[in-house]
Amino acid sequence: MYLEAKNHGYKIILMVSFENEETELDNVKSLISMNVDGILMDPVSHSEKGEAFDLVEKHKKPLVT
């Protein structure tokens, strides 16, 4: 996956929340502050109602869950 991303001009940034919603939100905030092109997330909560989802939507970042 890394080489495929690199071949298309992208870099992969890996962040781990250890099933902690607060850490997940901090990770999303960090990614948004880096102005990433999109976010691929395996969320702590499987509900799309959490703060992390709201933040991604607010900043209009593509999201794959």
Rank of each mutant, 00 (worst) to 15 (best):
L31G: 00
D37K: 14
E21R: 08
S47C: 09
E19N: 15
I13L: 15
D26A: 07
L14Q: 06
E57L: 14
N20Y: 03
G38K: 09
G38A: 14
E19V: 10
M1E: 08
K6W: 01
V64S: 02
S17N: 03
K58M: 12
E4F: 05
S30L: 12
V16N: 10
V64G: 01
N27E: 02
I32A: 04
V36T: 08
K60W: 06
K11N: 14
P43W: 02
K11H: 12
S17R: 01
I13A: 11
L25G: 00
K60D: 13
D54K: 15
E48I: 11
A5T: 04
V56C: 05
K29C: 07
Y2A: 11
K58H: 11
I13D: 08
K29P: 03
P43V: 04
T65N: 10
L55C: 05
D54R: 15
S30A: 11
D42L: 02
N20W: 04
K60E: 15
I39K: 01
D54G: 14
D54H: 15
I32F: 04
G50M: 09
V16M: 04
K6L: 01
A5K: 09
E19A: 08
V64M: 09
N7C: 02
T23A: 08
K60H: 15
D42Y: 05
E48N: 13
P62W: 03
M34E: 12
Y2Q: 14
S33A: 12
K49N: 15
V36Y: 11
M1L: 08
D42Q: 04
L40H: 05
